[in-house]
Computed example of a mutant assay.
Amino acid sequence: MTRWTEFETAKQFIYAYLKENSADPLLFHPKVLIICGSGLGGIAKILRDDTVKIPYEQIPGFKVSTVPGHDGSLLFGRIGENRVPVVCMLGRLHYYEGYDLADVTFPVRVSCTLGVTYMIATNACGGVNESYKSGDLMVISDHINLAGMAGNHPLRGSNIDDMGPRFPAMSDAYDYQLRLKFFNVARQIGMKRSIHEGVYTYSCGPSFETRAECRMIRLLGGDVAGMSTTPEILVARHCGIICFGLSLVTNTIISEPPPSAREACLKGLPVEHAVNQSQGRTSHEEVLREGNEASKDVNVLMEAFVNQL
Protein backbone atom coordinates (compact mmCIF):
# COMPACT_ATOMS: atom_id res chain seq x y z
CA MET A 1 0.00 0.00 0.00
CA THR A 2 1.44 3.40 -1.00
CA ARG A 3 1.46 6.35 1.40
CA TRP A 4 -1.10 8.12 -0.81
CA THR A 5 -3.43 5.12 -0.56
CA GLU A 6 -3.06 5.23 3.24
CA PHE A 7 -4.11 8.90 3.31
CA GLU A 8 -7.11 8.15 1.10
CA THR A 9 -8.12 5.17 3.26
CA ALA A 10 -8.06 7.36 6.37
CA LYS A 11 -10.06 10.05 4.59
CA GLN A 12 -12.74 7.62 3.47
CA PHE A 13 -13.07 6.26 7.01
CA ILE A 14 -13.46 9.80 8.36
CA TYR A 15 -16.09 10.60 5.71
CA ALA A 16 -18.05 7.47 6.59
CA TYR A 17 -17.86 8.30 10.31
CA LEU A 18 -19.02 11.88 9.72
CA LYS A 19 -21.86 10.74 7.49
CA GLU A 20 -23.07 8.41 10.22
CA ASN A 21 -22.76 10.95 13.04
CA SER A 22 -23.49 14.38 11.53
CA ALA A 23 -25.96 16.06 9.20
CA ASP A 24 -23.62 19.02 8.59
CA PRO A 25 -22.11 18.66 5.08
CA LEU A 26 -19.43 21.32 5.69
CA LEU A 27 -17.78 19.18 8.35
CA PHE A 28 -16.63 16.97 5.48
CA HIS A 29 -14.53 19.89 4.21
CA PRO A 30 -12.93 21.68 7.19
CA LYS A 31 -11.26 24.97 6.33
CA VAL A 32 -8.87 24.99 9.29
CA LEU A 33 -6.81 22.34 11.05
CA ILE A 34 -6.03 23.29 14.65
CA ILE A 35 -3.36 21.28 16.47
CA CYS A 36 -3.83 21.59 20.24
CA GLY A 37 -0.56 21.46 22.17
CA SER A 38 0.08 20.32 25.75
CA GLY A 39 -2.52 21.81 28.08
CA LEU A 40 -4.29 23.58 25.21
CA GLY A 41 -6.94 20.99 24.46
CA GLY A 42 -9.46 23.45 25.92
CA ILE A 43 -9.64 25.01 22.46
CA ALA A 44 -12.25 22.33 21.84
CA LYS A 45 -14.62 24.27 24.12
CA ILE A 46 -15.04 27.06 21.55
CA LEU A 47 -16.53 24.76 18.91
CA ARG A 48 -20.21 25.43 18.41
CA ASP A 49 -23.16 23.45 17.08
CA ASP A 50 -22.96 19.67 16.99
CA THR A 51 -19.44 18.24 16.97
CA VAL A 52 -18.09 14.86 15.95
CA LYS A 53 -15.19 13.27 17.82
CA ILE A 54 -13.16 10.42 16.33
CA PRO A 55 -10.51 8.68 18.47
CA TYR A 56 -7.17 8.26 16.72
CA GLU A 57 -7.11 4.53 17.34
CA GLN A 58 -10.19 4.09 15.15
CA ILE A 59 -8.74 5.88 12.12
CA PRO A 60 -6.66 3.73 9.72
CA GLY A 61 -3.02 4.82 9.73
CA PHE A 62 -3.26 7.01 12.84
CA LYS A 63 -1.06 6.28 15.84
CA VAL A 64 -2.19 6.64 19.45
CA SER A 65 -1.18 9.66 21.54
CA THR A 66 0.57 8.53 24.73
CA VAL A 67 1.43 11.85 26.42
CA PRO A 68 -0.55 13.14 29.45
CA GLY A 69 -2.68 16.13 28.46
CA HIS A 70 -3.16 14.84 24.89
CA ASP A 71 -6.65 13.40 24.38
CA GLY A 72 -5.80 11.65 21.11
CA SER A 73 -8.77 12.35 18.85
CA LEU A 74 -10.02 14.43 15.94
CA LEU A 75 -12.86 16.84 16.72
CA PHE A 76 -14.94 18.26 13.88
CA GLY A 77 -17.11 21.35 14.37
CA ARG A 78 -17.48 25.07 13.73
CA ILE A 79 -15.96 28.16 15.32
CA GLY A 80 -17.18 31.75 15.62
CA GLU A 81 -20.19 33.69 14.41
CA ASN A 82 -19.17 32.85 10.85
CA ARG A 83 -19.32 29.16 11.80
CA VAL A 84 -16.00 28.33 10.17
CA PRO A 85 -15.69 24.54 9.75
CA VAL A 86 -12.62 23.18 11.55
CA VAL A 87 -10.98 19.95 12.59
CA CYS A 88 -9.04 19.95 15.86
CA MET A 89 -6.30 17.52 16.75
CA LEU A 90 -6.89 17.10 20.48
CA GLY A 91 -3.35 16.11 21.22
CA ARG A 92 -0.57 15.53 18.73
CA LEU A 93 1.93 12.77 18.09
CA HIS A 94 5.63 13.19 18.88
CA TYR A 95 8.84 11.68 17.58
CA TYR A 96 9.93 10.95 21.16
CA GLU A 97 6.95 8.64 21.65
CA GLY A 98 8.75 6.20 19.38
CA TYR A 99 6.94 7.11 16.17
CA ASP A 100 8.78 8.08 13.02
CA LEU A 101 8.15 11.52 11.57
CA ALA A 102 5.91 10.10 8.85
CA ASP A 103 3.62 8.84 11.63
CA VAL A 104 3.82 12.15 13.50
CA THR A 105 2.74 14.10 10.42
CA PHE A 106 0.26 11.56 9.05
CA PRO A 107 -2.76 13.54 10.37
CA VAL A 108 -1.53 16.63 8.51
CA ARG A 109 -1.37 14.66 5.25
CA VAL A 110 -4.89 13.36 5.82
CA SER A 111 -6.10 16.90 6.56
CA CYS A 112 -4.67 17.93 3.21
CA THR A 113 -6.81 15.30 1.48
CA LEU A 114 -9.82 16.70 3.38
CA GLY A 115 -9.19 20.06 1.71
CA VAL A 116 -7.88 22.07 4.66
CA THR A 117 -6.67 25.56 3.67
CA TYR A 118 -5.11 26.75 6.94
CA MET A 119 -3.25 25.05 9.77
CA ILE A 120 -2.92 26.57 13.24
CA ALA A 121 -0.29 24.74 15.30
CA THR A 122 -0.19 25.52 19.01
CA ASN A 123 2.36 24.27 21.50
CA ALA A 124 3.73 24.62 25.00
CA CYS A 125 7.38 25.65 25.05
CA GLY A 126 10.28 26.80 27.19
CA GLY A 127 11.28 30.45 27.10
CA VAL A 128 14.87 30.99 25.96
CA ASN A 129 14.57 34.72 25.31
CA GLU A 130 15.33 36.37 28.65
CA SER A 131 12.48 38.86 28.22
CA TYR A 132 9.87 36.07 27.98
CA LYS A 133 7.96 35.06 31.11
CA SER A 134 5.84 32.02 31.94
CA GLY A 135 2.32 32.58 30.63
CA ASP A 136 3.43 34.75 27.70
CA LEU A 137 2.36 33.87 24.16
CA MET A 138 4.62 33.95 21.12
CA VAL A 139 3.52 34.09 17.49
CA ILE A 140 6.03 32.01 15.53
CA SER A 141 7.69 33.95 12.72
CA ASP A 142 10.35 31.33 11.90
CA HIS A 143 11.90 28.17 13.27
CA ILE A 144 15.24 26.43 13.75
CA ASN A 145 14.99 22.71 13.00
CA LEU A 146 17.84 21.23 15.05
CA ALA A 147 16.56 17.69 14.49
CA GLY A 148 16.28 18.28 10.74
CA MET A 149 19.83 19.56 10.57
CA ALA A 150 20.89 16.27 12.17
CA GLY A 151 18.98 14.24 9.56
CA ASN A 152 15.61 13.69 11.27
CA HIS A 153 13.40 15.39 8.70
CA PRO A 154 9.74 14.54 7.92
CA LEU A 155 10.30 14.95 4.17
CA ARG A 156 13.16 12.46 4.11
CA GLY A 157 12.60 9.56 1.72
CA SER A 158 10.64 9.29 -1.50
CA ASN A 159 8.80 12.50 -2.29
CA ILE A 160 5.00 12.37 -2.47
CA ASP A 161 4.77 14.19 -5.79
CA ASP A 162 0.97 14.45 -5.68
CA MET A 163 1.26 16.64 -2.59
CA GLY A 164 4.29 18.83 -3.12
CA PRO A 165 7.75 19.38 -4.64
CA ARG A 166 10.92 17.49 -3.77
CA PHE A 167 12.57 20.67 -2.46
CA PRO A 168 9.94 22.95 -0.88
CA ALA A 169 10.91 26.47 0.17
CA MET A 170 10.45 27.34 3.86
CA SER A 171 11.28 31.06 3.83
CA ASP A 172 7.53 31.75 4.05
CA ALA A 173 6.64 28.89 6.40
CA TYR A 174 4.72 31.14 8.83
CA ASP A 175 2.32 33.30 6.85
CA TYR A 176 2.81 37.04 7.33
CA GLN A 177 -0.83 37.97 6.72
CA LEU A 178 -2.06 35.45 9.27
CA ARG A 179 0.43 36.77 11.82
CA LEU A 180 -0.72 40.34 11.17
CA LYS A 181 -4.37 39.30 11.40
CA PHE A 182 -3.71 37.61 14.75
CA PHE A 183 -2.05 40.69 16.27
CA ASN A 184 -4.91 42.87 15.00
CA VAL A 185 -7.43 40.51 16.58
CA ALA A 186 -5.54 40.57 19.89
CA ARG A 187 -5.61 44.37 19.87
CA GLN A 188 -9.28 44.53 18.91
CA ILE A 189 -10.38 42.32 21.80
CA GLY A 190 -8.08 44.08 24.26
CA MET A 191 -5.94 41.05 25.13
CA LYS A 192 -3.82 41.84 28.20
CA ARG A 193 -1.55 38.79 28.09
CA SER A 194 1.89 39.54 26.61
CA ILE A 195 2.24 38.35 23.00
CA HIS A 196 5.69 38.24 21.41
CA GLU A 197 6.81 37.30 17.92
CA GLY A 198 9.88 35.15 17.48
CA VAL A 199 11.74 31.99 16.54
CA TYR A 200 10.75 28.48 17.65
CA THR A 201 13.57 25.96 18.08
CA TYR A 202 12.73 22.29 17.58
CA SER A 203 14.50 19.34 19.13
CA CYS A 204 13.28 15.75 19.39
CA GLY A 205 12.94 15.46 23.19
CA PRO A 206 11.76 14.03 25.50
CA SER A 207 14.38 15.50 27.84
CA PHE A 208 14.22 19.21 28.50
CA GLU A 209 17.19 21.34 27.44
CA THR A 210 20.40 21.52 29.44
CA ARG A 211 21.81 24.86 30.52
CA ALA A 212 24.46 24.73 27.79
CA GLU A 213 21.88 23.83 25.15
CA CYS A 214 19.78 26.80 26.23
CA ARG A 215 22.76 29.13 25.75
CA MET A 216 23.43 27.57 22.33
CA ILE A 217 19.81 28.07 21.24
CA ARG A 218 19.93 31.69 22.37
CA LEU A 219 23.18 32.18 20.46
CA LEU A 220 21.57 30.70 17.32
CA GLY A 221 18.69 33.17 17.56
CA GLY A 222 15.99 30.97 19.07
CA ASP A 223 13.45 32.58 21.39
CA VAL A 224 11.68 29.44 22.61
CA ALA A 225 12.40 25.71 22.58
CA GLY A 226 10.01 22.80 22.12
CA MET A 227 9.52 19.24 20.95
CA SER A 228 6.79 19.57 18.31
CA THR A 229 5.24 21.83 15.66
CA THR A 230 8.15 22.07 13.22
CA PRO A 231 7.61 18.63 11.58
CA GLU A 232 3.91 19.42 11.12
CA ILE A 233 4.68 22.84 9.65
CA LEU A 234 7.18 21.35 7.19
CA VAL A 235 4.68 18.77 5.93
CA ALA A 236 1.80 21.26 5.84
CA ARG A 237 3.82 23.68 3.74
CA HIS A 238 4.88 20.81 1.49
CA CYS A 239 1.15 20.19 0.96
CA GLY A 240 0.48 23.87 0.22
CA ILE A 241 -1.40 24.52 3.48
CA ILE A 242 -1.05 28.08 4.85
CA CYS A 243 0.42 27.97 8.36
CA PHE A 244 0.24 29.89 11.63
CA GLY A 245 2.04 28.91 14.83
CA LEU A 246 1.36 29.97 18.41
CA SER A 247 3.54 29.06 21.39
CA LEU A 248 2.61 29.31 25.06
CA VAL A 249 5.65 29.87 27.27
CA THR A 250 5.08 27.51 30.19
CA ASN A 251 8.51 27.89 31.81
CA THR A 252 11.75 29.76 31.45
CA ILE A 253 14.78 27.60 30.72
CA ILE A 254 17.73 27.81 33.08
CA SER A 255 20.79 29.03 31.20
CA GLU A 256 23.31 29.94 33.90
CA PRO A 257 26.24 27.50 34.04
CA PRO A 258 25.92 24.91 36.84
CA PRO A 259 27.85 25.50 40.08
CA SER A 260 31.53 24.59 39.77
CA ALA A 261 32.74 21.65 41.84
CA ARG A 262 36.32 22.61 40.99
CA GLU A 263 35.95 26.06 42.50
CA ALA A 264 34.30 24.55 45.56
CA CYS A 265 37.27 22.22 45.94
CA LEU A 266 39.75 25.09 45.64
CA LYS A 267 37.83 26.93 48.37
CA GLY A 268 38.19 23.90 50.60
CA LEU A 269 34.48 23.20 50.80
CA PRO A 270 33.62 19.69 52.05
CA VAL A 271 32.10 17.05 49.79
CA GLU A 272 28.91 17.37 51.82
CA HIS A 273 28.60 21.04 50.74
CA ALA A 274 25.04 21.36 49.45
CA VAL A 275 24.00 23.22 46.31
CA ASN A 276 20.37 23.23 45.22
CA GLN A 277 20.53 22.39 41.51
CA SER A 278 16.84 21.47 41.35
CA GLN A 279 15.62 25.06 41.70
CA GLY A 280 13.89 26.14 38.50
CA ARG A 281 13.78 22.64 36.99
CA THR A 282 11.06 22.08 34.43
CA SER A 283 8.39 19.38 34.68
CA HIS A 284 5.54 18.27 32.44
CA GLU A 285 3.15 19.00 35.30
CA GLU A 286 4.27 22.63 35.17
CA VAL A 287 3.66 22.67 31.42
CA LEU A 288 0.10 21.38 31.83
CA ARG A 289 -0.61 23.77 34.71
CA GLU A 290 0.46 26.83 32.73
CA GLY A 291 -1.52 25.60 29.74
CA ASN A 292 -4.67 25.25 31.78
CA GLU A 293 -4.24 28.73 33.29
CA ALA A 294 -3.76 30.32 29.86
CA SER A 295 -6.50 28.35 28.13
CA LYS A 296 -9.23 30.96 28.67
CA ASP A 297 -7.24 33.72 26.96
CA VAL A 298 -6.07 31.37 24.20
CA ASN A 299 -9.66 30.28 23.56
CA VAL A 300 -10.88 33.88 23.26
CA LEU A 301 -8.07 34.69 20.85
CA MET A 302 -8.58 31.57 18.76
CA GLU A 303 -12.32 32.07 18.42
CA ALA A 304 -11.90 35.65 17.21
CA PHE A 305 -8.97 34.73 14.95
CA VAL A 306 -10.53 31.67 13.29
CA ASN A 307 -13.81 33.55 12.82
CA GLN A 308 -11.99 35.84 10.36
CA LEU A 309 -10.44 33.05 8.26
Rank of each mutant, 00 (worst) to 15 (best):
I120H: 00
V108I: 13
N159F: 05
G98Y: 14
I144P: 00
L101Y: 08
G115T: 01
D100W: 05
C112N: 12
N145R: 03
P107Y: 01
S131I: 05
L93V: 11
H153Y: 13
T122M: 04
S158G: 13
L137C: 02
R92L: 08
T113H: 10
R109K: 15
G126T: 11
M149C: 13
E97L: 06
P107I: 02
N145F: 09
M138N: 04
I160T: 06
L146T: 10
N123I: 07
L155T: 13
V108L: 05
L93D: 07
K133G: 01
T113C: 09
T117K: 14
G98W: 13
D103L: 03
G148A: 08
V104T: 12
H143A: 11
S158F: 08
N159A: 12
L114K: 00
A102S: 15
N152K: 06
M163H: 10
G157T: 14
S134I: 05
C125K: 03
D142M: 09
I160R: 01
Y118V: 12
H143F: 08
V110T: 06
L146C: 10
G126L: 05
F106W: 10
G98A: 08
G151T: 03
F106Q: 07
A102F: 14
E97P: 07
M119T: 02
M149F: 15
D162I: 12
R109G: 04
S131A: 14
G127L: 02
C125A: 15
P154W: 00
N145V: 08
I140F: 04
E97D: 07
L146S: 07
L101S: 05
K133P: 00
E97H: 13
D161F: 13
N129I: 02
V104A: 09
V139R: 02
V110M: 09
D162K: 08
L93E: 10
